[in-house]
């Protein structure tokens, strides 16, 4: 579909496409179940979880949330500009989106480095087993999202581009999914124990 007019009210075409939304639901359910298991273990060992949580850097978590939300904001603007047939501006917002993702990756790497330097690994305790598993799994999604963004941006800027609004929206939906997952991970891992 290479048109700027999509009937979003159709049950078969939510913004981003039905396939992407099935993926989003599967991801949310997977991460959600892991978070429920994490909370279950947290209720079993509240002191261990509290002490472990205090070893996490909340400021890093907040800044990373802001990086992802900012990149999500630029992504939404990119879709809007593409719909207005302004590919140049859309591509600029795409690049700003990627910058947000890249900053997230850098700060997460710094956080991981500090943890490893302090000898905190997935084997440390059940809290950190979940911490590493959930954040690393999320990080893989961000990296995948960045690859998709780079590829789509390349496609939309080349001459005789056949990139349509459905491609841009699917790409945006995947990127926003990373935001949604992080918005659940951040409070549960960094704040509530």
């Amino acid at each position: 579909m290479n048109t700027l007019k999509i009937n979003y009210k159709s049950i078969y075409y939510p913004p981003g496409g039905i396939l992407m939304w099935i993926i989003i639901f599967l991801e949310l359910i997977t991460f959600g179940m892991a978070l429920l298991a994490f909370v279950y273990y947290g209720k079993e060992q509240p002191e261990l979880f509290h002490q472990s949580r205090l070893q996490l850097n909340t400021t890093f978590g907040v800044i990373n949330t802001i990086f992802l939300l900012t990149s999500g904001f630029f992504m939404a603007n990119s879709v809007l500009e593409f719909k207005n047939n302004n590919r140049l501006k859309s591509s600029l917002y795409f690049k700003l989106t990627m910058l947000g993702g890249l900053l997230f990756l850098i700060l997460k790497s710094v956080e991981y480095y500090h943890k490893m330097e302090s000898g905190i690994t997935p084997e440390t305790n059940v809290f950190f087993a979940f911490y590493w598993l959930l954040t690393a799994f999320h990080l893989i999604h961000v990296i995948m999202g960045l690859v998709i963004l780079i590829w789509t941006n390349y496609g939309m800027t080349k001459k005789n581009s056949d990139t349509g609004i459905d491609d841009i929206e699917a790409c945006a939906a995947f990127w926003h999914m990373c935001d949604l997952i992080w918005l659940l991970l951040f409070p549960v891992l960094y704040l509530i124990f």
Binding site: K9, I11, P15, F73, M75, V79, E169, L180, L183, P187
Partner: peptide, 20 residues
Amino acid sequence: LSVLKFLLVSFEFMDLKKAH
């Protein structure tokens, strides 16, 4: 507060408000 943020991203940024 996290629920609010989640809904803002999905309904506004992802345009879910326009969906079925």
